[in-house]
Simulated assay, not measured.
Amino acid sequence: MSQLPPPVRTAQPRQEAPADNTVIAFRPASKKGRGARISIQGVAGSGKTWTSLSIAHGLAAGKKFAVVDTEHESASLYYGINGIEFDSCPMDRYDPRDLVKALDQAAAAGYGVIVIDSLTHFWKGTDGTLAQVEKAAGRFGGNSFAGWKDGTPLQNDMVDALLSYPGHVIATMRSQTEWVLQENARGRREPVMVGMKAEQRKGIEYEFDVVAEMNVENRLRFLKSRCPALHQKAIDKPDGARDIAEPVLAWLRSNPTQ
């Protein structure tokens, strides 16, 4: 009985991409013109609003900056302290599309720095992403998966607007303390605080250059930093302008020899 010949693998012709006007090119990497993206999360009373305003003041070099205020205009209580001046946009509904509009208006007005206090409301507040998902799900018999078809693009568009803002962006987020049961030296299990979880969509921290958390003792700890000077650093009662804005600006302005 004759043997069958071994299979021959025939190369398939490569499919060419549809013709368009897209130009793909590489260029030298540079931080020139890049704005910082900073987030500060914490529980109530941790000092995240004041710290974010102080950072913005430092980044703005004394010029006025913009604040999107979802906290019943609490940021305005700090106006004038240490020379801090800003224009405020109070909001009481938190459709992500409204934040996109606010960012567009701030960019058109030429604000070099904008603070969102807080980004949490655009996730779980009135008309926020979760509310938009629930509303959309109602049109499909309560199907939450169908609801996310509407909610996810709204959330993604909002994040894209934050990332594409032509200036520095600082966002505060409320957080919940997370506890786990661990065995102590006496062999008993006891609750131990292991960190704080930001009240926003999971993975939001990946979108920021610098991510920090603050506790009720006003201790700030960096969870992530692309700025080497702040990596894994912890600061008690931080001066946002001096301790954070200065090293961030120095990092963005540095241009190591290629």
Rank of each mutant, 00 (worst) to 15 (best):
S2F: 14
L4D: 12
L4M: 13
P6E: 11
R9Q: 12
T10A: 09
P13F: 04
P18T: 11
P18W: 06
D20R: 07
D20S: 15
A25L: 14
P28Q: 09
K31H: 14
K31I: 11
G33F: 08
R34F: 13
G35I: 11
G35A: 08
R37G: 06
I38G: 02
I38S: 02
I40D: 00
S46C: 11
T51Y: 03
T51N: 10
I55F: 03
H57N: 13
H57W: 07
G58K: 01
L59E: 02
G62D: 05
T70G: 04
E71M: 04
H72K: 14
S74N: 14
L77I: 09
Y78E: 04
Y78G: 01
S88N: 13
P96Q: 06
D98C: 08
D98P: 01
L99P: 00
K101R: 14
A102M: 12
A106K: 06
G110R: 06
G110V: 07
Y111W: 07
G112Q: 09
V115N: 00
K124L: 11
G125F: 04
D127L: 11
L130V: 13
A131V: 02
A131R: 09
V133G: 02
G138R: 06
R139T: 10
R139V: 07
F145P: 02
A146F: 08
K149T: 14
K149D: 13
D150M: 10
P153L: 10
P153H: 08
L154Q: 07
Q155Y: 10
D157L: 08
V159N: 05
D160S: 14
A161C: 09
A161F: 08
L162F: 03
G167K: 05
V169N: 00
V169C: 06
V169T: 05
V169R: 01
I170F: 02
I170D: 00
R174T: 01
E178K: 10
V180M: 09
L181C: 07
E183K: 14
E183C: 10
N184E: 08
A185K: 09
R186D: 15
R188A: 12
M196A: 12
A198W: 00
A198I: 00
E199N: 11
G203M: 04
G203D: 05
Y206E: 09
D209E: 11
V210Y: 03
A212Q: 01
M214V: 02
N215D: 15
V216P: 00
N218Q: 14
L220M: 15
K233S: 09
K233F: 08
A234W: 07
I235Q: 01
D236I: 03
A241Y: 01
R242C: 06
D243K: 01
D243L: 03
D243Y: 02
I244H: 01
I244D: 00
A245K: 01
E246P: 04
V248R: 01
V248M: 01
L249G: 05
W251P: 07
N255E: 15
